[in-house]
């Protein structure tokens, strides 16, 4: 693994006595695509919220590119981009206005903002709809805007919390290509998903979480190899073996 870009040490977070995250540690290498997998309620989103400085861990430390999320949250924020699990954007604004707004807030001047907004919309193949109101967009288009916003300011580390949920294969493939392209250009990515074949295809390493803890962490191939022939086993087999078949609330 390349030099560590993100280091999470022994993270804990409870909500009214419920332990959402219970002792999570991992590192993400520079320029790596790291998958965070786990059933519903495993604690993936809570972990990302702590990594991205919006939630303070009860216990534990996070450093990103050497900056502590507790002591230097502003430094951390200047190098991260977050694409939340839920669509967090202004539906009454146009796609372009959404990107412009966030662009200004990540510290771009108006010229950079305009250039990056158009570039990111083009990357998501939304340039034709730049001036369209987001409320009129399809689910897949909204997801693409949600991701495009996270790219404003060229973050060094991108958090993607289930960016492909509920969209068609076309939009999903577009998002895939984009992530791979971004990595080629030097970005580090933390990616969560419920689609195991997605993670298998995309991620250099994955951590499988359950009940607030990491139960396995390795390359997809190594995880599959532990179960049998890595060419015949799927990551889903590994996932189900490790997290069991019972339903989660």
């Amino acid at each position: 693994m390349a030099e560590a870009f993100l280091v999470a040490k022994d993270l804990h977070k409870s909500f009214n006595d419920h332990k959402a995250v219970n002792g999570v540690s991992f590192t993400i290498g520079k320029n790596e695509i790291f998958g965070l997998l786990g059933p519903n309620g495993a604690g993936k989103t809570t972990t990302i919220r702590m990594l991205s400085t919006v939630l303070e861990p009860d216990v534990g430390e996070v450093t990103i590119s050497g900056f502590s999320t507790r002591q230097q949250p502003d430094k951390v924020r200047s190098i991260i981009g977050v694409c939340p699990q839920e669509l967090a954007l202004y539906e009454e604004l146009t796609a372009l206005d959404n990107l412009t707004f966030f662009g200004r807030l990540v510290g771009l001047n108006s010229r950079e903002t305009r250039a990056q907004s158009m570039a990111n919309l083009a990357l998501m193949e939304l340039e034709q709809r730049a001036k369209g109101k987001v409320s009129k967009f399809s689910g897949g288009m909204k997801r693409r805007v949600n991701l495009a916003i996270a790219l404003m300011g060229h973050p060094k580390l991108l958090f993607l919390d289930e960016p492909t949920v509920g969209i068609d294969p076309q939009s999903r493939n577009k998002i895939f290509e984009t992530i791979q392209g971004l990595r080629t250009n030097g970005m580090t990515v933390l990616y969560t998903t419920h689609y195991m074949e997605e993670a298998d295809r995309l991620c250099d390493r994955v951590a499988i979480m359950d009940g607030g803890k990491i139960v396995a962490i390795d390359t997809p191939r190594a995880l599959k190899a532990k179960l049998g022939d890595p060419d015949k086993t799927t990551l889903e087999d590994v996932f189900l073996k490790l997290t069991g078949r019972s339903l989660r609330d």
Binding site: R77, V82, L89
Partner: peptide, 14 residues
């Protein structure tokens, strides 16, 4: 509720 305020706090906005 939509998480927009939270998202705003991942930018440089305090």
């Amino acid at each position: 509720r939509l998480g927009i305020l939270e998202r705003l706090l991942t930018t440089r906005l305090t």
